[in-house]
């Protein structure tokens, strides 16, 4: 159990700064997900918490104690690596019990925790195998088991599921959620997959280009993204972003359609699920290009002449065909406004 605090943490390699102004408090037992595109510094930040990477500037505190320059072994934190990093010359059991072996716990004491972890992870019959005789999913479980046996103050995960196929990934995601519920230990989880972030997190930290873009609960990020980057990064399918220009009584699209909103807005954002289909003549005039029918929903890809493509997600199975002219009606309460710098502006309704 641990609280963590990052105070104005920076990281540079030589002259290049890869992380800056990182201020973050992680509560005891919280599940925090660091999410962002590849290369934004997620792993670097996680590795600085682990102690595997030096902290160039600022401070890291764990349970109020200064940890900035403390070596990894003294931080009492376990980490699950993207590559699993199992010791290839040790059996599954020895891999999982290695932390106790290092602490010179006698063999008889080690068996209990290893067996317990193996049982929860369904690894009971593999304890004598070497990692090379396991499938990818089983290796992933061993890596998690090794962290569980460690019984640490906090768990760190660096894209632990990215080497698994889709079905296994969904299964392991659930397993990690269960693990967090059962243990209640602080977890920091890195992923570039926003679905993983949304489903697992108590709080999400969105990173881009070495800066924190926004910190919030999944729903906060979904409903009130702080800027265009977060708006388009969080949510699936991606939010539509359209250019707008100021007009006398609000905003207008390039095709002249008037929209409500603050005059300083340069872009509006509409999530696909917040657009309704209407008869031509109502709302924004558009042409249907492609329809993806998913059963429960349909993704209707449209083109607004003179403006660009837009996606609407419609419940059920609407009776329309490609090439049809439709009207698109955005829900006014769910419009997002962004100024020239991309920062979100308060809307009219809010």
């Amino acid at each position: 159990m641990a609280e963590m605090e990052l105070r104005d943490v920076r990281k540079s390699y030589g002259g290049t700064e890869v992380l800056r102004n990182i201020d973050l408090r992680i509560g005891d037992g919280e599940f925090v997900v660091l999410v962002g595109p590849s290369g934004c510094g997620k792993s670097t930040l996680l590795r600085m918490i682990a102690g595997l990477e030096s902290i160039t500037g600022g401070a890291l505190l764990i349970d109020g104690a200064e940890m900035t320059d403390v070596p990894p072994r003294a931080r009492d934190i376990a980490m699950v690596f993207q590559s699993y990093a199992l010791y290839p010359h040790m059996s599954v059991a020895r891999n999982m019990g290695f932390s106790m072996e290092i602490r010179r716990r006698p063999e008889t004491e080690r068996r209990g925790p290893v067996d317990a972890a193996a049982r929860t992870l369904g690894l009971g019959s593999f304890l004598d195998r070497l990692p090379r005789a396991l499938s990818g999913g089983q290796r992933q479980r061993v890596a998690m088991g090794r962290a569980i046996v460690r019984d640490p103050k906090a768990f760190l995960f660096d894209e632990p599921l990215s080497n698994l196929d889709a079905a296994l990934r969904a299964e392991m995601r659930l397993e990690i959620a269960r693990l967090h519920q059962r243990l209640g230990t602080t977890m920091v989880y890195v992923t570039h997959d926003q679905v993983e972030a949304m489903t697992l997190a108590d709080r999400i930290v969105v990173l881009n280009g070495g800066d924190i873009q926004q910190v919030g609960t999944p729903i906060e990020l979904y409903e009130r993204p702080a800027n265009r980057f977060v708006a388009t990064f969080i949510g699936s399918p991606t939010m539509n972003v359209l250019e707008v220009a100021p007009s006398r009584d609000g905003l207008r699209l390039a095709d002249g359609t008037p929209l409500p909103g603050p005059g300083t807005a340069r872009h509006i954002g509409i999530r696909p699920e917040h657009i309704a289909l209407a008869k031509p003549g109502e709302g924004i005039a558009a042409t249907v290009e492609v329809i993806e029918r998913l059963g429960s929903d349909s993704n209707v890809h449209c083109e607004i002449p003179g403006v660009g493509p837009i996606l609407a997600r419609i419940r059920g199975n609407p009776d329309i065909r490609p090439g049809a002219s439709v009207g698109l009606v955005p829900e006014k309460d769910h419009l997002h406004y962004f100024d020239a710098s991309g920062t979100a502006l308060p809307g009219m309704a809010m």
Binding site: A50, G51, L52, P71, P72, R73, I77, A78, M79, F81, S83, A85, L86, Y87, P88, F98, S99, I102, R103, R146, R150
Partner: peptide
């Protein structure tokens, strides 16, 4: 030999 291996060992409590 992947660097991850000794990092994992250090997380496990090794110098």
């Amino acid at each position: 030999i992947p660097k991850d291996l000794e990092e994992a060992a250090m997380m496990d409590g090794c110098t």
